[in-house]
Design a protein around this nucleic acid. Structure first.
Lengths: 299, 299
DNA sequence: GTCAAGTATCACCGATGGTGATCGTCACGA
DNA sequence: TCGTGACGATCACCATCGGTGATACTTGAC
């Protein structure tokens, strides 16, 4: 037994605890009871001859040994998944779990339709999608840290070196104003017309927010973002109730009574969605299958 | 359980069977009974949903799925060893198994002294040395296929792209003849003097054999190798008993009664020993420690 | 047809991994 | 200071697992 009893199950439990910083949440994620995780990590520490986690009833932290182990444990788990996927690919059926990060607003990409089709083609693959609490930048971080296999992001500007972006779709952001707003009678406006006004927008880190911030900065103008909303589908409602104006894609305005949509000229308000993949490691077979389907589905 | 019960132990058993092409030999290597290996591989096949080995009582072959799995299983096992070694490195004591390939004749490098010192410094590391049945080329193959972590080889000419060689030591091969041989009264000879004669040499694939073959080829000459011996320590004995002449390093001739050693001029008969390391993957902590000790020990 | 070597299956048994209960610890708020 | 809630570690229990040893079956070689 050249690995002294160390097994993938133990590495998986360790990684879950390290990521959750909590044994109980890790147990929920792993679908076992808390004491099973506690015992498995204790056995792993005995087998490796080093404490990996420094913990009490209030806090869980990595030790130096644990910090050394964590990225390598992820690599070992990814390698084992890749091995399993390679067998599935040869044997005619992909299996496993594909961890996908998505932006809050997936309608830019018709993601439900894409994932639905993927599921029909590969029923053995479980899709774990997670929405980005910290926007696309948070998804990029998770991808780099091997907590995600793929991510659908909106990231204006060049990506980090370890991430490859494939542009998938693009939508223009229009100005949405209440229909009694002084600008409501216009067909189009410029950024100068709306500089300094109160805006409703997504939080910093979201792709659409980055697009709007960049456009104002490029024009040498500023504005006030007085309300941040994580879901742009509620943007038109906020506008309707007079809480501010907003720059939104048309598809996010499903009920346009009480608001007007105006074009914005002379500014780059293109909101691009991309598929982010890692550069520094091969992607698994299921991820490759989804990448292929994405290329075929969203030309 | 995102890997559906697949564990490192199973991958390890599968790799052993694939390499040995025999369940019984794999069991010996793994220190378990044959039925344990048979059962573990069967379970792995069930968990992956594909037959991995096509076998009967006479023969074991990889299926396509097994061929897809094998290199990836090795990568996963290496990744897990690396994870374990990283913890050991941080925690102050290297552990694990270091698989080292060596040429049959290690005295060129004083390898026993080197490995003895390594063992004293890192008692937690088990050294598995294997001699090369197919010479240094076989060791290079084993290194590329992840069956070895490091190898001490003699490989004249450029190495393959995925292997890095660090030259460690060099010895000149001298001509050894019976003391009643017509050339025995000479101090030195050229290759032309000995072209066409019967030689004792190592098998093809051994480093020293490659050196001698290259020297004759470079001179546009040939010779007959009538006896191949895997251990050059027995070379002088063969010469003494009149079975042929040989090109050997001086250290391999411990008893020179009945033979003469002659220099060979005008030919490149330098037999170089090198440490071969993989280029395409990081080496583990124990391997890095041995590489460092080799640099310090054999300047 | 016989035989030796090897793989698969089986009965058995100690070890393992999970559950559920519970104890001890630790911030935190009253 | 004390009570509390949340959490990790330990324990008893138990179903399952993984290994052993025996053996049945298969398969080339002779």
């Amino acid at each position: 037994m050249i690995l002294d009893g160390v097994e993938l199950r133990q590495l998986e439990y360790f990684v879950a605890v390290a990521e959750e910083q909590n044994f109980t949440r890790a147990a929920v994620r792993l679908h076992v009871v808390q004491s099973a995780v506690s015992a498995a990590v204790k056995t792993l520490e005995r087998e490796l001859g080093a404490p990996l986690l420094d913990r009490n009833s209030k806090r869980v932290r990595l030790t130096d040994a644990g910090a050394a182990l964590l990225p390598r444990a992820r690599i070992a788990l990814d390698a084992a998944r890749d091995a399993r996927d390679a067998v599935a690919e040869v044997h005619g059926g992909l299996r496993g779990i594909l961890r996908i990060g998505t932006m809050t607003s997936t309608r830019l990409l018709q993601l439900p339709a894409l994932l639905g089709e993927f599921h029909r083609r590969h029923p053995g693959v479980l899709l774990h999608t997670s929405v980005a609490p910290h926007g696309s930048q948070g998804l990029i971080d998770a991808l780099a840290e091997r907590r995600l296999d793929l991510a659908f992001v909106s990231l204006p500007g060049p990506p980090p070196a370890e991430i490859h972006l494939t542009e998938l779709a693009c939508s223009v952001l229009d100005l949405v104003v209440p229909d009694d707003h002084p600008l409501a009678t216009r067909e189009a406006v410029t950024l100068a017309d709306i500089a300094g006004l109160d805006f409703i927008d997504s939080p910093v880190g979201y792709g659409n927010r980055a697009v709007t911030d960049r456009a104002f900065a490029a024009a040498g103008l500023s504005r006030r973002v007085t309300i941040e909303i994580p879901d742009i589908a509620t943007g038109a409602d906020h506008v309707r109730h007079g809480l501010g104006i907003a720059l939104l894609p048309r598809f996010a305005v499903t009920d346009d009574h009480g608001v007007r949509l105006l074009s914005v000229t002379g500014a780059d308000l293109n909101w691009t969605a991309s598929l982010a993949t890692p550069v520094d490691r091969p992607v698994g077979a299921a991820a490759r299958a989804l990448i292929s389907l994405t290329a075929e589905f969203l030309p």
